[in-house]
Simulated scan of single mutants.
Amino acid sequence: KNEGSYTIGKVELEIKLVNRGHVSGNVKGGNFFKASGFADMFGNASKDYQPQTLIETPILAENLKPGESRRFRVVFDYPPYFKGVTQFTRIFAH
């Protein structure tokens, strides 16, 4: 719901799924896989490449007037090789 006094041009929801336990099946504390970005840039050249982080950013609403609300549902499939998933979400209003 737009609680403000102005129209919101676009509302986006960023969903980030991180494969946890992809090495040992059990990750504790600060042992999360941290990609350097290098593997993600060039890893797709390998047929065995399996990304460990997936990010989707669906648009939930456009031109949301003051007091107006929109219902939404997001479906996000993740690869079967993920052993467990940690989920992070952020919302952006532009």
Rank of each mutant, 00 (worst) to 15 (best):
P58W: 07
A61I: 10
F72R: 04
K65V: 07
S69W: 06
L60K: 08
G67R: 12
F32W: 02
E62Y: 03
G30N: 13
M41G: 04
G43H: 07
G29M: 06
R73W: 12
A61N: 12
E62D: 10
K34S: 11
P58M: 09
P51H: 05
Q52T: 06
Q50T: 10
R73L: 13
K34G: 07
F72E: 05
V27D: 07
Y49R: 03
F33K: 05
F38E: 08
F33R: 05
A45T: 15
S46M: 13
S69D: 13
Q50M: 12
A39V: 14
V27W: 00
P58V: 11
N31Q: 09
R73P: 02
F33H: 11
M41N: 13
Y49P: 01
T57W: 02
Y49I: 07
E56V: 11
Q52I: 01
G43K: 07
P51F: 05
R73C: 08
S36C: 06
F32K: 06
L60Q: 08
N31I: 01
G29D: 10
E68L: 05
G37C: 04
G67P: 05
E56M: 04
Q52W: 01
A61F: 04
S36D: 12
N26V: 01
I55D: 00
G29E: 05
Q50V: 08
P51G: 04
F32G: 10
F38I: 15
N63H: 13
Q52C: 05
K65P: 05
E56K: 09
K28D: 08
P51T: 08
Y49D: 03
K65H: 10
S36T: 13
P58S: 13
Q52A: 09
L54N: 00
E68Y: 02
D48W: 14
A39W: 15
K34N: 07
R73N: 14
I55E: 04
K47D: 14
F42R: 06
R71S: 15
Y49F: 15
N63V: 10
T53M: 01
L54T: 00
T57G: 00
K47S: 15
Q52M: 10
L54W: 00
S46R: 13
A45P: 01
V27P: 00
G30A: 08
K34V: 08
L60T: 11
N63I: 06
L60C: 12
N63A: 12
S46N: 12
K34Q: 05
M41Q: 12
R70K: 15
F42L: 14
N26E: 12
Y49K: 06
A39R: 13
N31F: 05
G43R: 03
